[in-house]
Design a protein around this nucleic acid. Structure first.
Length: 274
DNA sequence: CATATGTCCTGAGAGC
DNA sequence: TGCTCTCAGGACATAT
């Protein structure tokens, strides 16, 4: 589930790693299938031991450690991955461990479902991959949003999830953003008007910034945690996500509906979103 | 090229 | 109670 706000919270939580030096790196044996590491653990160790962390960045839904060797170490949490500076939620799904020269001495990667990835890329390869992704959702302008989405023959909700168009928005925040922008998730991109793209652009910023202030959303399964293993609080502010059947808080007339688009749940108010 | 669908993975919850 | 089935969705592979 980690989308832009959760991954940004992870990034901020481990900013203190900047300037630190990697002394060891290992997978953790556990009952689950092994996590995918690109290219291999041996290569990762050979290329990163002794390297310094120059910067802690975010790239869409990925956490990016820039190393003094000019390589880039990437954590891609996908559904249930976490980066942690403290004890993980459980030991069974702890997957990876990096040790450092000075405090904080350890970074853990925990992933219940194990769909996440850890990758090491050269700076050049990283740049090539970055340009394949769309602009970061927090850097959007009205013009950029139109340029990336307005010609598509797809529902706007589906288009917002396409990381090659816009990077950082996932299933939860797409519903929240469209509700605030008062645009139906079913609307085809190429039929959306200019003033609506303007509203959408503002809603993207508003929702993502609100969610970052709340350190993201920890849903009922409790999986998502910040780097200190504390839950976020934005789930208490969701306007539509996972609220099917509840009264719309804007019109107070219609109820929130759930529909399925591209095999993902979408939540919206038929009366408020046109 | 654009768009649609299948796959990976685990645990929670439903239904019998 | 314990089994089987379905669902959750981020990113990519494969199909149309």
């Amino acid at each position: 589930m980690p989308e832009l706000p959760e991954v940004e919270t992870m990034r901020r939580g481990i900013l203190g790693l900047a300037g630190n030096t990697i002394t060891d790196m290992a997978t953790v044996k556990n009952p689950c299938k092994p996590l995918q590491i690109n290219p291999t653990l041996a290569t990762l160790r050979r290329k990163t031991l002794g390297a310094k962390i120059d910067a802690v960045e975010r790239w869409g839904k990925r956490v990016v450690l820039r190393l003094s060797t000019s390589d880039v170490l990437i954590f891609e949490p996908r559904m249930t991955g976490l980066v942690l500076l403290t004890d993980p939620p459980d030991s069974d799904h702890l997957r990876f461990r990096i040790r450092f020269q000075s405090a904080p001495r350890e970074l853990l990667y925990w992933d219940r479902r194990g769909l996440g990835r850890i990758s090491l890329l050269s700076r050049d390869r990283f740049q090539q991959d970055v340009v394949k992704l769309g602009p970061d959702a927090l850097q959007l302008s009205h013009e950029l949003l139109c340029e990336r989405l307005s010609d598509l023959r797809r529902p706007i909700k589906v288009a917002l999830l396409d990381q090659k168009r816009i990077a950082g928005i996932g299933n939860l925040y797409a519903s929240e953003i469209l509700y605030l922008a008062r645009i139906s998730p079913l609307r085809n991109c190429h039929r959306i008007r200019d003033f609506e793209w303007q509203r959408l652009c503002e809603a993207v910023k508003t929702i993502l910034e609100e969610a970052i202030r709340c350190e993201g959303s920890t849903l009922s399964d409790g999986t998502y945690r910040n780097a200190l293993n504390n839950p976020g609080s934005y789930q208490n502010h969701h306007r539509v996500y996972d609220r099917a059947g509840q009264l719309c808080s804007t019109c107070k007339v219609d109820i929130i509906r759930r529909v399925v688009q591209s095999q993902r749940s979408t939540f919206y108010c038929r009366k408020c979103q046109k």
